[in-house]
Structures are given as C-alpha cells and as structure tokens.
Design a protein around this nucleic acid. Sequence first.
DNA 1: TATGAATGAGTTTTCATTCAT
DNA 2: GATGAATGAAAACTCATTCAT
Lengths: 194, 194, 194, 194
Amino acid sequence: MTRKLTQRGRDRRLQILREAARLFSERGYHPTSVADIVASLKVGKGVFYWYFPSKEELFVELLRGAHQDLRRRQQAAIGDEPDPVRRIELGIRASMAWFHEHRSSFNLVQFAATEERFAPVVRHNREVAIADAVRHIKDGIVEGRIADQDPGVLAEAVVGVTERLAQAYLLERDEPVDQVADAAVAFCLRGLMG
Amino acid sequence: MTRKLTQRGRDRRLQILREAARLFSERGYHPTSVADIVASLKVGKGVFYWYFPSKEELFVELLRGAHQDLRRRQQAAIGDEPDPVRRIELGIRASMAWFHEHRSSFNLVQFAATEERFAPVVRHNREVAIADAVRHIKDGIVEGRIADQDPGVLAEAVVGVTERLAQAYLLERDEPVDQVADAAVAFCLRGLMG
Amino acid sequence: MTRKLTQRGRDRRLQILREAARLFSERGYHPTSVADIVASLKVGKGVFYWYFPSKEELFVELLRGAHQDLRRRQQAAIGDEPDPVRRIELGIRASMAWFHEHRSSFNLVQFAATEERFAPVVRHNREVAIADAVRHIKDGIVEGRIADQDPGVLAEAVVGVTERLAQAYLLERDEPVDQVADAAVAFCLRGLMG
Amino acid sequence: MTRKLTQRGRDRRLQILREAARLFSERGYHPTSVADIVASLKVGKGVFYWYFPSKEELFVELLRGAHQDLRRRQQAAIGDEPDPVRRIELGIRASMAWFHEHRSSFNLVQFAATEERFAPVVRHNREVAIADAVRHIKDGIVEGRIADQDPGVLAEAVVGVTERLAQAYLLERDEPVDQVADAAVAFCLRGLMG
DNA sequence: TATGAATGAGTTTTCATTCAT
DNA sequence: GATGAATGAAAACTCATTCAT
C-alpha cells in the first residue's frame, strides 16, 4: 500500500515525519495531536492522512527508522576494525554522535517502551543492538581483553552507561559530544576489563 | 485540603494507588483510563475522585512516592557504613532489590520522563539520586579508591548500569536479584576504579 | 414529611438555609454544590439531607421565603395608611430596606426566573407583588392622584425602577438605603402622576 | 486563533449561536447541555467544538453580541436627533423593538448577572448602556427639560422601566410592541421631568 | 493533492444523592 | 443526628479519523 510519490511528495512526507518527531519528543506522543502536527506545518489534516495511514503507524516508522539509522551509523564507524575493544569504543562514540544529532529520537524510544502496543518494537530493536555489542564482547573475551562474564550483561551495561550519559549530558546539559563520549568510553572500558 | 480519612479510607486510597500503578505500568499511562482503574477495583467512578483530585495528580504522587521509597531503602541499606566503595555497592544492591519488588514503578518513571508535564518531577528526582551517589563517589576519590573524574558523570554511569540491568534481567527475564546485583556491582566497581 | 425538629435542629436548618443563600448569591446556584455548602459549615453531607430533601427544594424554599418575607415587610410598613400614593411610597421604601438587608435574595430570584423549573414560582411571586401594587394604584387613580392608565403597567414600572436602583446602588455600589429609596420614590411618583 | 471559515462554516457557526441562544433562553444555561444543542441541530458533538472553544465562551459571545447589537439599534434609531428628550424616547422605542425581536437574549443577560464568572461581562455592558443614556439625560438637564438629579440614577430608572415592561408585556404576554413602548415612554418621560 | 468540515466514541471530571456505620 | 464513603448518570471536552468539495 506504499504510495507512489513524486519528489515533492517525498519531501512532504519527510517534513511531516520530522515535525512529528520534534513535537512527540518535546511534549510527548499523546499530548501531540495530529491536529498539532499539521497546524505546525500550516497544512490541512488531509495531508497527514495522505502520507500516513495513522498516527500510530507514523510513530512506529519513526521508531524503526531511528533504530536502523543508529545501527548503520555504528556499523559505518566500526568498519572492519580488527580490535574488538576498539570496535566497542567506536560503537559508543558513534552512538553518542548519533544521539547528539537526533536528540528527538531519544524520548520516542523511551516512551515507546512504556506502552503495550509499542513495547515489542522497542524490545526487538534492543535485542538487535545488544546482539551487535555481544559479538564484539565475545571476541574480546576470547582475546582475554574483556572479563569473562555473561556477554549479554556486559553489553547491557555498556548500553546503559552510554544512553544515560547521553541523556544527562548531551540532551539535558548540552555538553560537547566528545567529552561525553570520552567519559562513557573510559567508564565502559574499565568496566569491561578483566 | 487533604481529606480526613478513616482507616477504611486510607486502605481504599492505597488500593487505588497500587492498582493504578499496576495498570499504568502494564499498559501505559494514557491507555489506562480512570474508568479502567475503578472497574478493575469494582467500585464506582466517584471513588477515584474522592481520593485523588485527578489522574494526573495520582500519577505524580506515584512518581514521588516511588522516589522517596527507593531512597529510603538505599539509605537504610547503607546505614553508617564507613567505606565509600562499600556504600556504593550497598546502594546498588538495595536499588536492585527495590526494583525487583516494585517492578511497576520502573515503567512509570520511564514514561514520565517523556511527557512535558511530568518531566520536571523526574528531573528533580534524578538530581537527588545523583547527588546521593556523588557524595560517596567523592569520598572514594579522596581516599584514592575511585578514579579522579567528574563524580557526576560516574554517578550517572552507575545509575545507568543499575537501571539497565534491572530492566533487562529483573523485569524482562526475571533472573534472581542477587545475580543481577552481583553483575551490576562488578561492572560498576571496575568502572569506578582508578 | 416535615420533620419534627428540636430547637437545635431548627437552628441548624436555618443555618444551612442562610449559608446556601449566601453561596448561591455569590457564585450562582449551579456553581455552588451541596458539598460546598456543607464544607463551608464544616459538617458532613448527611446533615444537608437530613434537613432538606434536595438542593432544588431548598432553593424553592428560599425563593418562597424571600417573597413572603418581603411581602410581610411591605404590609407592615404600609399598615393602614389611608393615602394610596403614600402607601406606594411606603412600599417602595420598605422594599428597598428589605433588599438592603437581604442582598443575597436578589440574585436568587433573578436566577430562578431564567430556569424552566423555577420560573413558575417566580412568575407567581411576581404576580402577587404586582397585584398588591395594583390595588394601591387603582385607589390612586380613583382619587385622581395617579394617571389613568393600565394599573398593571404602572405597577410593573414601579417595581422595575425599585429593583433596578436597588441592584445598581444598594448592591453594587453600597450607597445609603435612604438616598436610594428617595430617588426611587421621586422617579416613581412623578412617573405615576397624572 | 480565530479559525479561517468558509461560507458554509460561517453559516454553521451562526446556526449554532442561534440554537444555543434559543435553548439557553428556554430552559436555562446549565440545563442545556452541549449535547442538547448539537442534537437539536442534528450534527456531531465535534461540530460545536470546531466553532467554539467552550460552552462558556459561546455564551460570552452571545452576551457581548446582544449588547452590541442592541446598542447599534439604539444608535441607529437616535441618529442625530437634536432633542435630548426625544433621543431618550427613541432609545426606549428602539430597545423595545429589539427586545421584541430578540426575546431569547433577555433571559441570557438575566442569568449571566447571577453567576460569578459572567457577572463582569454583564456589569460592563450595563455600564456602557447607562453611560449612553446619561449623555442624553445630562443634555436634558442642561436644557431644563429634565429634573436636576443624579443622571446615573435617572438612567438606571429608565432602563429598569423599559426592561421590566418588555419582560412582563412583550415576552410574557406578547402584547403589541408599540403599546408597550408607549407605556414605557410615558412613564419614563414623566419620571424624568423636572 | 489538499482543505475545512464533520463524526462520534472515548476521556476526564462533577455532583446530587444514597448508604453503612 | 451525623459522618465519611460510595454511586453512577451526565456533563464538558478531545481527538483520531473520514468526508465532501
């Protein structure tokens, strides 16, 4: 049912996605009505439903898009780096940079996790992210560079540190990305070491 | 303007708080209507508004109550332990135990952070929690037991690890509290070490 | 179904009537809830329903009571004054004094006139009041002291002036009763003269 | 924030205003629910809130609209008549005609005066109306055609007579406008004469 | 494609009244 | 007589979605 869109149509679609993300992130998903979104773009309500079947589907698209985009960013950063510990570091730094540029996505995921209908999507995305990290961690353990503990636990811990510092220092306090990334990397690498 | 309540009244109030927390946590705040809450308790709609001025205020009370309760639990666990690193460990373990017993509170805070009107409460609660941890971390730094880095950052990292592992292993996978706590403590203490 | 009341009971009843009249008049009938009334008296809700079958009936009682009381006051003032014009003057002055002392009743009647279920009571009360005035006016016409016009119209006009000046100067501007009464009498007597 | 409306929209809006006025006036403001209004127009509930932010605001608009409309009617009737007494007469007659054509507005104002939140609007409207009348009365006093008394009091008296006779004879008894106007003019002019 | 208009189920909240103690 | 608790119908209002133009 994906509509064939002209260039102009694709632009419109993207514009709506971005504005929705911004408003959802600022005020919350429920407090942002479809009317708010279209009003903020100064278009009629029909426009929204021309490009999206429902508010809910748009939100899920945002969710999936954010996950894919972040993941691509991590993979691009890691490239074919052979050192697993260095790969983890690059992953943390890439994530931090991405969070910095896509501040609005942060809240969306946070929110989605708390609502029954969106939770499965979030859960799936998280599993993928953890599986990615677990691979590097396992390699590190094999090389004796990382403590021989449950790699899943270590991966969750790394993600926990990264997201928390992003939230507290990037989003709330607007500190320079590099410094925050440095701090996250330092803590995580120590935490991982055997 | 707090109502004078009999014992029965206090029980009812508590019952509503608990049921609301359960439903909010299971389905989400917005998808849970006041009608759902009272129906689930098999009482009339008026009962809710006899005890709470609004759904919103009940939610805030839940938020503040959770924060206070967790904090008390941490303080009780720490007692007058002189070793700052040990204090941090005790704090992590107490938090983990509390999360285990109050699984519903977890989602609530998560959600609240994403909605404009509740965010300030969450922010305040977090600041208090971080300030608590910072005190122990500073002591640890003075004693040379903890890396001489921004104590706020370290505190956020510890909280990030603890909450993430609680979420992933206690709530989603129902693993034994002690094991999850051990893992969190291990990671954090390594992460903190100088 | 009138309850047998002890002295204390009669006091309570009166107290409720007065408080209700005050609140109805200050805020309006609908915006004043039974809960407001009993809260303002610091008693339980049961008290209200012990003395009155419903909010509506209490209101009607206030309405009827006000009418009767005002009428008695007028009759007492007029006594057996033989001069019809003088009787009208005394009636106006008595009304003005009564309005001054029962400011709250004013709004009640005003409101009651606008609501379907109370309008008949108001209409009836007004007819009685007009009929009273008409008697004096007819006498005045017979004596040639008052213009020979429809006495009903003249009566309404007199009432209109009296109430309007009471409202504007007694209630809203708190001017001395006598002065307001003088003004009303002056205007009305000129208006009536042949 | 006023919505851009098409012709159809403006018609709808007006239709709602009129229907609301009719129902408020017949049954009272509170006994008339928004549901009643839209049901009576056979449209959905959302229509009401598409055109008006709240029942309360619609009511205030009705109030202000009535005031302005009556005032315009008076001014049009008075034109540039040089004789102040004649101006007053024309004002009374114009008001009477307007009351006759807008019977529903009458009750609304009456009601509004009794409720805290609407009273200020009524008070303001009345002040304007009185100020209008006062101007003519002052002129009349200067010319020695009107009793040298507080013009505000005289204005209130005139308004009191006019409204009362309109209420009693136009609305309740459906008498011919001209006759009622004649009676009001007669009484008022006598009442004003020096 | 796009707009303003319309729908109506669903939400929060109020409140007169009744009940149990 | 009196209280706090409970009821539940009904109110105002919201908003995702659809429709007519």
